[in-house]
Design a binder for these strands. Structure first.
Lengths: 235, 235
DNA sequence: ATTCAATCTTAATACTGTCTTAATGCTAGT
DNA sequence: ACTAGCATTAAGACAGTATTAAGATTGAAT
């Protein structure tokens, strides 16, 4: 949920590049730098950033061309940084698909504010084309957005680990998940000593979501292997 | 392309108002002018525009305040026009929810380009329908226009951060919001050291809006995760 | 510039919920 | 009936939370 935002800086001037780099890292953003148009396009493709900061004066390519190419397949916000204050450039860049424009010499704080505006927008857009974030299986519902779980219409409160465990099972309904896999997913590591602990969590989870925990309907045990969630029709 | 795009210009300087007016009409935009904050808010409410152009230096209201109020229920793009080139203003306006910023004296063509950028965006997320400028949940009311909060009919005074926090919770009623998310929304950044501070604000907020802060009805704690506001029926 | 009031931040304390661990009881397969 | 693996319970350790109050900041008014 709390992955850092990635920002791609396309800038050939080392001094300015460093300034931006330092600024971004103090704010906790992840960043990547490209020093020409060609490598920039590759990076946009291979590791899509959340925001792009683009210097118009690149050595190998016209800035407008870079925007056009990126806009060919990506809607990532682009903030232009340019030494030339000429109207002409600004307007062309904006019409080509850039979202914003900052003129050198620019204030670091202003650039940060404009990045925040762009990120605000990214977040909104990404919610739109997401699938419905509600999982349903029989009488069980998981609302991934709200982080809530319902059983027979009633909300049940799960602790963080219980919730994570249930989500992992739900994401793989019908599949048998090994102890190792579950431990890795939930605790991000595997210590053999953790298997007993996994059992404890299964017990509390079942107590909360199963009508009869001794005869579990949703979470099935596979001896010596792991657990799986069974898939049921809607009702 | 059947209906023209509507633009609301909030500007008290007649000369600049006329300039913008003429520019917009030659481009085939429909426009409306408001000369103060109060009438501007009414117009946003009664005839929602596609883009808002806002001069920060209004006679009756601080510009930031106008942005805050509009953003209480509407996501219409706001382009700031301001004589003051000071960083402080820019950053505050952008963080308050403005989308873009143009400093006087500005080029007409640049303004038009920025309007086009804003409109490009409007089309994309016009699916989002507007909310009402008043939020109600059980005995709690938030008037986004007046920036006031009522509990059991009584107005309570909240400090700016308390208010922002409550608004964020209200905008996502029913959803569990992580500490990180809340910090990002309210402070625009996340420093781990801020989590304790978040708790302090929750305490004061609860003291003000909860009947029994020890058994909160509205703001629920999710240990190791965050907080959420519970949704209640009207009464 | 200086003062003052309001708000924000930080730190300290007591407290609570969650996690881990270990012990005990249970079940199925041989 | 014996054994291996699983379920269940409960206690203590731990991490996370509520609350208070004192110090630092901010912004407005003089």
């Amino acid at each position: 949920m709390s992955m850092n935002n990635r920002i791609l800086v396309i800038e050939d001037d080392k001094a300015i590049g460093n300034l931006i780099k330092m600024t971004l890292s103090t704010q906790g953003y992840e960043y990547d730098i490209a020093i020409d148009g060609k490598s920039a396009l590759q990076k946009v493709l291979s590791m899509p950033p959340d925001v792009i900061i683009l210097d118009l004066g690149l050595p190998d390519m016209d800035g407008i061309e870079v925007i056009n190419k990126i806009r060919g397949w990506s809607q990532t916000p682009i903030i232009i940084v340019s030494a030339r204050g000429e109207e002409h450039d600004k307007i062309h860049a904006l019409d080509a698909g850039a979202d914003d424009y900052v003129t050198k010499p620019f204030s670091v704080d202003e650039l940060l504010a404009r990045i925040r505006v762009a990120l605000r927008r990214v977040k909104k857009d990404s919610l739109l084309d997401m699938e419905l974030p509600i999982f349903t299986n029989g009488n069980l519902k998981i609302d991934y957005l709200a982080n809530t779980v319902f059983i027979r219409g009633e909300e049940v409160h799960l602790t963080p680990i219980e919730y994570k465990l249930l989500v992992v099972l739900a994401k793989h309904v019908g599949k048998v998940l090994t102890h190792n896999f579950l431990l890795k997913e939930v605790w991000q590591q595997v210590l053999p000593s953790d298997v007993p602990s996994l059992r404890v969590f299964m017990a509390t989870l079942r107590k909360k979501i199963e009508e009869n925990p001794a005869n579990p309907k949703y979470i099935q045990t596979h001896v010596r292997v792991g657990y799986r969630m069974l898939r049921y029709e809607e009702e």
